[in-house]
């Protein structure tokens, strides 16, 4: 009696094992015969349709309008907020043509992309919303020095009315 029970158990085990294996094969088999469910995106080919989300943090850019004016007053709040020293602001003295007073203005807004951790702290620190995160993500270059960028366009000026 015990032997029969054991034999039953032996074959029961085998049956259970085969059944469980077949359940697994059902899943993979289903996907094999449903190639529509393939999730691969072919990256360089789909560049035209590939759109990043608005909030995606790719790199810091200084916003310029059509008159080549930006909103950065050179207050260095972003520089202080940055945990890694990614941003360096080099200021210059500028004589205001109207009042004749000398004011502070940015000479170079230096951004080291190679050190940036994309933490967004500089953006929320900026009191004048001069900088934002761009959605670019193809940052690879052959020379490391190219990752150090000057964000203000040559000849760009501070937008009037920002300093107040």
């Amino acid at each position: 009696m015990r032997i029969i029970k054991n034999i039953g158990q032996y074959f029961g085990e085998i049956f259970h094992a085969i059944k469980s294996l077949l359940t697994g094969m059902k899943i993979t088999g289903y996907y094999f015969f449903h190639p529509k469910e393939i999730v691969t995106q072919q990256y360089p080919e789909n560049r035209d349709t590939l759109k990043m989300f608005d909030r995606f943090r790719g790199e810091v850019v200084l916003i310029h309008d059509s008159n080549n004016e930006h909103r950065c007053t050179g207050c260095s709040a972003c520089e202080l907020a940055c945990p890694n020293g990614t941003i360096e602001i080099i200021n210059k003295k500028e004589i205001d043509p109207e009042t004749g007073k000398s004011t502070k203005a940015i000479d170079q807004f230096v951004y080291h992309l190679s050190m940036c951790t994309f933490c967004n702290l500089c953006i929320i620190a900026c009191p004048t919303d001069a900088i934002k995160m761009a959605q670019t993500f193809e940052h690879s270059v052959f020379d490391r020095s190219k990752l150090t960028k000057v964000l203000n366009n040559p000849g760009s000026k501070l937008m009037p009315g920002i300093r107040e």
């Binding site: 993979t28 996907y31 094999f32 190639p35 393939i38 999730v39 691969t40």
Partner: peptide, 13 residues
């Protein structure tokens, strides 16, 4: 290719 299709991939393309 077969493995890719089982895994919902395209495989070599």
């Amino acid at each position: 290719k077969v493995c890719a299709f089982f895994q919902q991939r395209l495989g070599p393309m």
